[in-house]
Write a protein that binds this DNA or RNA. Sequence first.
DNA 1: CGATATTGTAACAATTTGTAACTGCGCTTT
DNA 2: AAAGCGCAGTTACAAATTGTTACAATATCG
Lengths: 252, 252
Amino acid sequence: MSLQVVAIRDAREAPIPLSQPGLSSLFDRQPLERFDAGSAVFWEGDDAAHLFQVTAGILRAVRLLSDGRRIIVGFLRPGDLLGVSLKDRYLYTVEAITPVALRRLSRRRFEEEIRRQPQLRDQLFSRLCDEMTAAQDQTVLLSRRSADEKVANFLLMMSRDEFGNCTRIVDIPMTRLDMADYLGMTIETVSRTITKLTNSGIITATGRRSMMVLKMDALRSLADGDNGETGCCQRVRDMPPHRDGLTVWKSA
Amino acid sequence: MSLQVVAIRDAREAPIPLSQPGLSSLFDRQPLERFDAGSAVFWEGDDAAHLFQVTAGILRAVRLLSDGRRIIVGFLRPGDLLGVSLKDRYLYTVEAITPVALRRLSRRRFEEEIRRQPQLRDQLFSRLCDEMTAAQDQTVLLSRRSADEKVANFLLMMSRDEFGNCTRIVDIPMTRLDMADYLGMTIETVSRTITKLTNSGIITATGRRSMMVLKMDALRSLADGDNGETGCCQRVRDMPPHRDGLTVWKSA
DNA sequence: CGATATTGTAACAATTTGTAACTGCGCTTT
DNA sequence: AAAGCGCAGTTACAAATTGTTACAATATCG
């Protein structure tokens, strides 16, 4: 999905000299690799020898504390790149939530191409910036939001299609545990909160792992917090429209 | 401090053709600007027209939710860059905690130079990667750590000198409120936790805003969690040594 | 169709927060 | 220099939220 968006951008308004190939073009020729739901693509600490592009399916990026506490640092969707790194080891484990199809590229090759094609570097940089913004929004979410707000935000995030629009039917491929470990709460609290939302008539279950949003506005105002400017839902991750200024520090 | 480290790196083992100027060289010629403690360098939502390099003092990067909840996204120290952005508005407010000295550069000029000097782009990219790693560590800290662990981590972070070594004397220029808004807790809990650490003989107050670590190991094991590999303190931010693999996603 | 895993519910416990009074330090004022 | 003020920080106690534990209900998979 992100893939499509960028491809479109490349073709149309090419911010680079000519309409040159995007980052995803590096993977186009690579064979598809499939992973079963639950299997790991790579492990935290592994040699970071490859990069992957998600073609189909959903994955989770997991970190573990030594005492077993689990943190899901993010979910990956089609079009997302994983394994980009300047370091030599993966920082987290990536596991398939649904069956997944990926294309693999060696890191050596990737870096060569990045070096050769400056516009790819620009794209990579831009992507990193977006990632950074998302990470900060996640920080805000985790540090100062109640269980209700967290879940509302999560549901809104999941309700977005590839263009950032909110759909009423929401598919939730991950388990409650995944949600909990992403939002920094327990499955029980997640469960309670969803029950509460259902009882208030804001959402309704349409299946075990899918639901419908009945009152989108109510859900938005629950998720609300700092979105005075956009008026729209909280920017948790992966929200193309209305992203505003990332600001990085760390000097030279 | 980061500034020095990089300068040294440039001079010695130059990962780039010759020993070319670092990012900070862009700011060297700019005049010093001073800000009083408590004053803002820029505001969330402002036009992101300039970049700044911290020469002296400590600052905080603050975001506000509409209902007044405050989140400190990070603290900035000498050598840190602020205002790097691909977007056109600052994402957060930056305020001086202590009196501060900065050098300012227009964004236009910065981007020109980045475009002209590829090795600067490399440095910027590398810095972004570090930032990303730090942001993820912060995510872990906020989502799955108890008050004790958070405060222990914070104190260890503050106890690091410019080379990443832990000093016994810790200076804490920020208020309890700043700490609380950074760690996602209340001032009372911060205070109670520090008292607890003092009563356990792990730290001792040496002044209103400074303390001494009496049992560094105990503090480390409190802060502990996922540091099996490094054996060292939690990587919260700004820890030069032993940083391991950042892995970014978000495709092309 | 039965075994297993996931999810939901509820009572109870632990942690964290909220409230509010109080201390101590630094500053101004007299 | 002493008194008075204000602010940051601390502490005690009550309240709320979230986490724990246990068990029932439901789906999923072989």
